[in-house]
Amino acid sequence: MTNNLTASKEHIAKQGVFWILSDIMAMTKRNLVRYIRLPQLLIFSTIQPVMFLLLFAYVFGGAIKTPGNSYINYLIPGIIVQTVIFGAMQTGVGLADDLSKGLIDRFRSLPMARSAVLAGRTIADSIRNIFVVLLMSGVGYLIGFRVHQPLSHQLLALGLTILFGFSFSWISATIGMLVKSVETAQVAGFIWVFPLVFASSIFVPVASMPNWLQTWAKISPITVTVNSVRALVLGGDVTPALWHSFMWMAAILIIFVPLAVNRYRRST
């Protein structure tokens, strides 16, 4: 028979930072395995952005004026940020899937770190996003995307993009924990993401939009992030946009990490 007192001591020790990290790593690995098992999932998740890319580059591109850059060069950084956002939507879908299959119940009944399920999922989706970004850059190269900034800037741009996706993952996680069904999570994700994506500088310069839309589009988290990425990879003034982007990310994380964690704790 176990003595409760010693048992408790031992288990409190197990809640240390080491075990939290260990739990997060185990969950991240678990979430990544499915992409390693099914690499087509990664490939498919780039088909839609590639279609957007080709559509805009060859159909609308001629009509869109982008001073200082070829349209392809203008478009690719935007499309990459868009891809990362769509990737972040998978966080909610994956969590809703785990919820509906009862896996979250199992995890919640284990003596593991409470944060690990959500953190493992958002981190795994960020790692997945790195691959998708690299894949998209390759496709971009094939259709004429060329950069002349130093590698360090390219890496900074990559880091910023992934971090941006990570913060959106937490919004998505909150939605996933709320709606609890895969289909609803999918729909609920796109309902708010689509307008956000189009009312930004991803596809067209904000200056070409009607005034009322510009007011939002200029300060949209997507615009400031896309503008920072563009400036980093193509050259130009980075600073104001980059700070705005960081502020948005901080705000999103401050609001949605607690919300998602709270939903996780209470999920029934």
């Binding site: 395995v33 009862g102 896996l103 199992r106």
Partner: peptide
């Protein structure tokens, strides 16, 4: 949670593992 094991009403397994 250190003392219990749970098998819920519906099998909670990760299908990809």
């Amino acid at each position: 949670r250190n003392h219990i094991g749970l098998a819920g009403q519906y099998a909670a397994i990760d299908e990809n593992l």
